[in-house]
Design a protein around this nucleic acid. Structure first.
Lengths: 267, 267
DNA sequence: CAGTGGTCTAGACCACGTG
DNA sequence: ACGTGGTCTAGACCACTGC
C-alpha cells in the first residue's frame, strides 16, 4: 500500500469548530451533504472496486485506515460497520477485517434461497447445458444497462439435489466483463458460480433483487426438470449488482418446489 | 415512569478497571456473556413487551435512558441502533425515538411483498370470508407453540387489487391473545391487519419467516380467486413473531401472480 | 431558544488469535 | 507479548424540530 495516498481527508463542517470559520467543501463536489464516515465508506468501496483488496484478503487495520484517511478510528469503524452489515466485509475478532467471499459457509446460502423441506441444506450438483456468446435481447439489455445488441454471455444450467433436477437457470452476463468465459472453464468449476465469477473475472456480486411468480412448466423446462408439462414451478427473475450498484447479471430460474421451498425472512 | 426503576446497572467486566478487582456477575445469571449494550437492548425490548411504550409513542430520550440504566449515552445509542435496524424503533432527528407502527408508509409494505407488475403499489381491499374460534390443528399448534387442541382463531380473507381477487389468506392466531376478536370488528377495520392487531390486542408483529412454493389451484381456492382449477399459484406459509421471538401468527397465503409478483431483495 | 438525535473524536480496557 | 477487532465512556459540536 502506498504511504502517500491521494485520498486525503475532505474538509467538512465539523472542522469549523477548530478555526471558527464555516469552511465547507465536500469532495463530491458540494452537491449533497454526506457525513464523514459515509465518505470513508465510499472510498473503501472504491478501493474494493479497483481490486486493491481481493475477496478473501484482509483489509488494513482500523488504525491504519484512520491514519490513511486522517480521521479517527471511530469514524473508520462506523464505515466498516455498515459494510459488514451489508456482508461486503467480514470482521473476525483478533484477526482483522476481510473482503467477503462467496465460498464461506456463512454467506454460502445468501443468494440460494432454496432449502429442502426435510433435512439440512446440501450442496447442489451443477450441470452446464450451454454457454455461448449472444447479442443481448432487449429486456436483458435493459436490466444490465447495456445497449440492445451488445455482446452478452448466455449460460443454461441445471442444479440437482441428490439426482433430482431442481433448478433450471438461464443466466445472462455482460460480454465485456466476462471475456474468456467458456463452457469448458465453467464445467471445470466446482463450487458456487459467484465464487467462480469473483475469482476468475474479478466480478463480485454484492446485492440482488428478485421477482418471483408461479408459472406452468413449458415443454423444454418440463423436460429438463423431469416433470409433466404444466407442473407449477416457481420462476425467479434476478438482477445482481456489484460495487457501486452496477448490474452485472440477469438470471431467470425455474424451481421445482415439490421437495424444496424458497425461504425468506422479514424484519 | 417510576423514577426508582429496579433495572439498575448490572456489574460487568469493565467495572474491574476502576476497582482493580475482577468483579463479574451478570444480571442474566452468569450463564452467558453479553455486552452491556445488548443487556440494555433486552431491557428495552422487555419494556416494549410490557407495553410501557405503545406503538406510535416516543420512548424516553437517550440521556434519560442512560440515567435510568446508569450507563453512558453511547451505550444506550448502540442498543437503540440495533432496534432501529430491526425496524422495532424509529428514530426521527430532532423529535425523538418512536415505537414502530404498521400504519406508517415506511413499513407498510414490509410484510406484504406482493407488488404490481406495472405501476405503483396500491392499497388492497380486504374482504373477510370467515372468522371463528377453532381448536388448533397439530401443525398450526406446533408453529404457534401451542398444545394441539388449544383455542385458536381462524380467519379467512381475500385481498383484491382493483376488483381482481389476488390473495387468499388463511390466518391462525392463538386464542388466548385475541379474546374478543370477531368477524364484525375485523370487517369494521380499515387498513393493515397488523395495525389492527397492535392497536386492538397489543400484539406487535416484529419479524416473520416465510416458505414459498408453487402449487396448483384447488377447487375452493380457484373459486375464491376466480381462476381455473390447476392454475399455478404461489403458496406462502408465514410464521410471525412478536417481541422476544414468540410466534403469534401462522398464515397460509395463496397468491395469483399473473399481474403481481413477490419481490425480494438480498444482500 | 432548548431539546432531540446525528456525527466525530479520544482514550481506556476487554476478548480473541497468533507467535 | 502483541496486534486485531469489540466494548464502553466522556465530551464536543452539528442538524433538525418545535416552542
Amino acid at each position: 500500500m502506498a504511504s502517500s495516498d491521494p485520498s486525503v481527508r475532505a474538509p467538512r463542517a465539523s472542522d469549523a469548530s477548530a478555526s471558527g470559520a464555516p469552511a465547507r467543501a465536500l469532495a463530491t463536489g458540494g452537491a449533497a451533504f454526506s457525513p464523514l464516515y459515509r465518505q470513508i465508506k465510499d472510498l473503501l468501496v472504491q478501493s474494493l472496486d479497483r481490486g486493491e483488496w481481493k475477496p478473501g484478503e484482509s483489509i488494513p487495520s482500523e488504525l491504519e485506515l484512520a491514519a490513511r484517511f486522517q480521521v479517527s478510528q471511530g469514524t473508520v469503524r462506523k464505515a466498516i460497520d455498515e459494510l459488514a452489515a451489508e456482508s461486503v466485509l467480514l470482521r473476525r475478532q483478533g484477526k482483522g477485517t476481510f473482503v467477503a467471499t462467496h465460498n464461506e459457509a456463512r454467506v454460502r446460502y445468501r443468494f440460494l434461497r432454496l432449502a429442502p423441506d426435510e433435512g439440512e441444506p446440501a450442496p447442489a450438483q451443477s450441470r452446464i447445458l450451454e454457454c455461448r456468446r449472444v447479442r443481448a435481447p432487449q429486456d436483458v439489455a435493459r436490466s444490465l444497462e447495456l445497449r440492445a445488441g451488445d455482446s452478452a454471455v448466455l449460460i443454461r444450467r441445471v442444479l440437482s439435489f441428490g439426482d433430482i433436477p431442481t433448478v433450471f437457470d438461464e443466466i445472462w452476463l455482460p460480454g465485456a466483463l466476462f471475456r474468456g468465459l467458456t463452457q469448458e472453464r465453467l464445467a471445470r468449476n466446482e463450487g458456487p458460480l459467484y465464487a467462480f465469477f469473483e475469482a476468475g473475472f474479478g466480478v463480485s456480486m454484492i446485492r440482488a433483487d428478485e421477482k418471483l411468480r408461479a408459472v406452468a412448466a413449458e415443454p423444454l423446462t418440463a423436460d429438463v426438470l423431469q416433470v409433466p408439462v404444466g407442473t407449477p414451478l416457481m420462476q425467479v427473475d434476478r438482477v445482481s449488482f456489484t460495487y457501486g450498484g452496477r448490474p452485472v447479471e440477469f438470471r431467470r430460474g425455474l424451481y421445482r418446489t415439490d421437495r424444496h421451498h424458497y425461504r425468506n425472512s422479514m424484519n
